[in-house]
């Protein structure tokens, strides 16, 4: 703690040229991503997701007694073509594992900062509350993409390692080349990413309600389960098209020939609606919330 100012002079001169205009926030977004992906928790979650297709592939390989007769038919077809493992992994992970990890990241977004007391320092920096919300949301969206890509790529790699690989049979019975099938795998990962955007927005909103990140995470995950339960009840049929989980498993439409884009579009519109509504709610809550943590 030297009080000598000898070292300070050049810094001060550099500092006095303060920007007149606030930067767009790419720097802070990069920093947010760095914080997200420097956490061991994030890597643990991605590893757990990668383990899903790996476990499926290994289990199928070990048992490999052919058709089990349960579960989606194409879990069986991974024995014929390893490129299906990624899709099979996504199918298994979409109802629970992916919402779980997305709930952790989005539920932690604001509440986690409040919990580590870093929220007040960010706000005093000043980060700007709306900017913080936007950056937090975008980081959660990047995590969604990372999660689904991790699953897909891990699945494809383990599939190549354990099973024969060749041209892929689509649901329509048509056969496409390996290159085409990889493009479709990427599209499916994108579809799953888009599917999770609404849940991320809900998590962000819940995260602004509390200083306890665990509570926000749990609430987000529970909501995703509730939505899926409601989606499976015929009594709530009128509600189904409005549930954010309604189109989650419709990525199968990308495995048809030709690709059925309508579910992609409907899903994207629905998720966009959720992002709008819950983004606005998060803004309403957070823009004037007293930060007392």
């Amino acid at each position: 703690m030297s009080s000598s100012d000898s070292g300070a002079t050049p810094v001060r001169s550099g500092l006095t040229e303060r920007r007149n205009r606030r930067s767009v926030g790419l720097g802070f977004f990069a920093s947010e991503l760095a914080v997200l992906f420097r956490r061991r928790r994030t890597w643990a979650m991605l590893l757990a997701l990668a383990a899903v297709p790996i476990l499926i592939a290994v289990a199928v390989r070990i048992s490999s007694s052919g058709s089990s007769g349960r579960g989606p038919a194409f879990i069986d077809s991974i024995t014929q073509n390893g490129l299906f493992v990624g899709v099979a992994g996504l199918t298994i992970a979409i109802p629970l594992f992916l919402p779980l990890t997305v709930g952790v990241v989005s539920g932690d977004s604001i509440a986690g900062e409040a919990n580590t007391a870093t929220l007040r320092y960010l706000l005093v920096s000043p980060v700007g509350r709306i900017r913080l919300l936007v950056v937090k949301y975008l980081a959660a969206a990047v995590f969604c993409l990372a999660a689904t890509l991790t699953l897909s790529i891990a699945g494809i790699l383990i599939g190549i390692a354990l099973f024969p690989v060749g041209p892929v049979t689509l649901l329509s019975g048509d056969t496409v080349s390996i290159g085409d099938s990889l493009v479709r795998s990427l599209l499916i990962a994108l579809y799953a990413t888009v599917s999770l955007l609404g849940l991320s927005a809900i998590g962000l909103f819940i995260s602004t309600l509390t200083d306890a990140p665990v509570g926000a995470m749990a609430a987000t995950v529970v909501l995703s389960i509730v939505a899926q339960v409601l989606d499976s009840l015929s009594q709530t049929e009128w509600l189904h098209p409005w549930l954010f989980s309604h189109y989650w498993l419709n990525f199968a439409d990308l495995l048809r020939q030709p690709i059925e884009w309508s579910s992609f579009g409907q899903n994207a519109l629905l998720q966009l609606g959720y992002v709008f509504v819950f983004g606005a709610l998060a803004y309403g809550r957070f823009s004037s919330k007293d930060i007392l943590s």
Binding site: P72, A73, F74, T91, L171, S172, G173, L249, A252, D253, R256, E260
Partner: peptide, 10 residues
């Protein structure tokens, strides 16, 4: 094509 869940009949 009948677009079933996770399946298709053609």
């Amino acid at each position: 094509q009948i677009l079933d869940d996770m399946a298709e009949r053609d």
